[in-house]
Amino acid sequence: MSKKFTKDHEWISLDGDVATVGITNYAQEQLGDVVFVEVPETGQQVAQGDDAAVVESVKAASEVYAPLSGEVVEGNAALEATPELVNQSPDNEGWFFKMKLSDAGELDELMDEAAYDAFVKELG
């Protein structure tokens, strides 16, 4: 299926009831060179809006919020040694974590690509 987006600049890609979460190209551009990523531990339960991961550049640290509720099933281990993947491939190899959804209904609150593009455009 196509990706969904949040106002916190995360993307969500759904495969069955497992969602892959990353940050958007816009977000990585705003952050600059990513130097560190902390992904959640497998098995961690998160509610929509909870802090789930941390992404850091040299001068900034941002929380990545859980866009949906559920259980973390995998963190992207590659980011520990190569955080620059977030800059190089935000939409693909730079994914943060995968989670098993507990409430698929929450998906309806998210933006589709066109709505997100419009949202970013408004930010200028």
Binding site: D33, V35, F36, E56, S57, V58, P83, E84
Partner: peptide, 10 residues
């Protein structure tokens, strides 16, 4: 000259 802070942190 300007120092590479990205390398220092990575």
């Amino acid at each position: 000259r300007r120092l590479d802070e990205t390398q220092a942190a990575r």
